[in-house]
Nucleic acid binder design. Structure first.
Length: 195
DNA sequence: TAGAGGATTGAT
DNA sequence: TCAATCCTCTAC
């Protein structure tokens, strides 16, 4: 297993990176409690379209991590309840990011069950707000380097192109015609995709 | 500085 | 279908 290099994130095509993140493994190691899973669902966001927090290059205190050079995390609070985890991409000053929407757990399920306060190993990480909770990711990870000791993404499984499904993104009706962009990517038939 | 609303989720 | 829940952004 090898941790993804900065060059993976620094590329300009955010939808290509969103596709290539499928099959990669997101891992946290918090206080020695290591857990992680294979990425099975992503969404691309770019400053060029209205679905993005940094649309039109507008920087705020919330989204400023998106303007960093690719290879850091952008974590923010949604609906006052859920932490959502994004991978920042592209060069410094260009606000593109990929939202990680679902994982297939591959290690540390015991810790995930504990964090989720559930008895069941089912659907632990099948949604953007759930996977952050299961992995222990909160807003203290905002701006964190993705090759750090507590958080990283490494090589996982190969996903062939024909198994990748593109569809419209979730919950951005306010984005007008940009809401119709097919920038949500998932692994066809995977059990862990969000509903 | 007040008010509206959100890249969600789980219970009803 | 709806409430939970609070931060962020916008308008005044």
């Amino acid at each position: 297993m090898s941790v993804l290099p900065d060059s993976f994130y620094l590329r300009k095509d955010v939808t290509l990176i969103a596709r290539q993140l499928l099959g990669k493994k997101l891992v946290t190691n918090i206080l020695g409690r290591r857990s992680g899973g294979i990425i099975v669902e992503t969404e691309a966001y770019s400053f060029r379209e209205r679905g993005c927090h940094a649309y039109d290059n507008k920087m705020t205190s919330r989204n400023k991590a998106m303007f960093e050079a690719g290879g850091v995390a952008y974590v923010y609070l949604c609906y006052g309840i859920h932490n959502l985890f994004n991978v920042v991409t592209n060069q410094n000053g260009i606000a593109d990011a990929v939202l990680i929407r679902a994982l297939e757990p591959s290690e540390g399920q015991t810790y995930m069950i504990e964090r989720m306060k559930t008895q069941s190993a089912k659907r632990l990480t099948s949604g953007p707000g759930k996977l952050t909770k299961a992995l222990g990711i909160d807003r203290s990870f905002n701006g964190r380097y993705l090759r750090s000791d507590e958080l990283w993404i490494e090589d996982g499984i190969q996903v062939v192109r024909s198994h990748i499904v593109a569809s419209v993104r979730i919950g951005i009706d306010y984005a007008g015609k940009d809401a119709l962009l097919p920038w949500r990517f998932s692994i066809n038939g995977n059990q862990w995709i969000s509903k």
